[in-house]
Amino acid sequence: MDETGKELVLALYDYQEKSPREVTMKKGDILTLLNSTNKDSWKVEVKITVNGKTYERQGFVPAAYVKKL
């Protein structure tokens, strides 16, 4: 869990989004878990840094590609 009590997951593999509802992640990324009720895909939040500014983006990733921490 992070400092706000949200559950975290670790990306086990790289994943490139295939639709606007998904998010891209790299192996080793730590993501905030938002919903894990679907056995196939979990909703997560990723933090992306562009030019020194951090943005948050929500979307789905394959459940088999992440592990709860």
Score class of each variant (00 low, 15 high):
Met1Ala: 13
Asp2Met: 14
Thr4Tyr: 13
Thr4Pro: 14
Gly5Cys: 15
Lys6Ala: 11
Lys6Pro: 13
Lys6Asn: 10
Glu7Cys: 15
Val9Gly: 09
Val9Lys: 00
Ala11Cys: 12
Ala11Pro: 01
Leu12Val: 05
Leu12Asn: 02
Leu12Pro: 01
Leu12Asp: 02
Leu12Tyr: 02
Tyr13Ala: 11
Tyr13Lys: 12
Asp14Leu: 05
Tyr15Trp: 06
Tyr15Met: 01
Tyr15Gly: 02
Tyr15Ile: 01
Gln16Gly: 06
Gln16Asn: 13
Lys18Asn: 09
Lys18Thr: 11
Lys18Arg: 12
Arg21Pro: 04
Glu22Asn: 05
Val23Asp: 01
Val23Ser: 02
Thr24Gln: 04
Met25Thr: 02
Met25Ala: 02
Lys26Phe: 09
Lys26Leu: 06
Lys27Ile: 05
Gly28Glu: 02
Gly28Ser: 02
Asp29Lys: 02
Asp29Gly: 03
Asp29Leu: 05
Asp29Gln: 12
Ile30Arg: 03
Leu31Trp: 03
Leu31Lys: 01
Leu31Ser: 01
Thr32Lys: 12
Leu33Met: 02
Leu34Arg: 02
Asn35Val: 07
Asn35Asp: 15
Asn35Cys: 12
Asn35Ile: 07
Asn35Ala: 07
Asn35Arg: 05
Ser36Phe: 05
Ser36His: 08
Thr37Leu: 09
Asn38Lys: 06
Asn38Ala: 08
Ser41Asn: 11
Ser41Leu: 15
Trp42Ser: 00
Trp42Met: 01
Trp42Gln: 00
Trp42Lys: 00
Trp42Ile: 02
Val44Thr: 00
Glu45Cys: 15
Glu45Tyr: 07
Val46Thr: 10
Val46Ala: 08
Val46Leu: 12
Val46Lys: 11
Lys47Pro: 05
Lys47Tyr: 10
Lys47Ala: 08
Ile48Phe: 11
Ile48Asp: 04
Ile48Glu: 07
Ile48Gln: 06
Thr49Ser: 10
Val50Pro: 00
Asn51Gly: 11
Gly52Gln: 04
Gly52Met: 04
Thr54Phe: 08
Thr54His: 08
Thr54Trp: 08
Tyr55Leu: 11
Tyr55Gln: 09
Glu56His: 15
Glu56Ser: 15
Arg57Cys: 08
Arg57Ser: 05
Arg57Gln: 07
Gln58Gly: 03
Gln58Asn: 06
Gln58Ser: 11
Phe60Glu: 04
Phe60Asn: 05
Val61Met: 01
Val61Ile: 08
Pro62Thr: 04
Ala63His: 02
Ala64Lys: 14
Ala64Tyr: 09
Ala64Trp: 11
Ala64Gln: 11
Tyr65Phe: 13
Val66Ile: 07
Lys67Met: 13
Lys67Gly: 06
Lys68Gly: 04
Leu69Tyr: 07
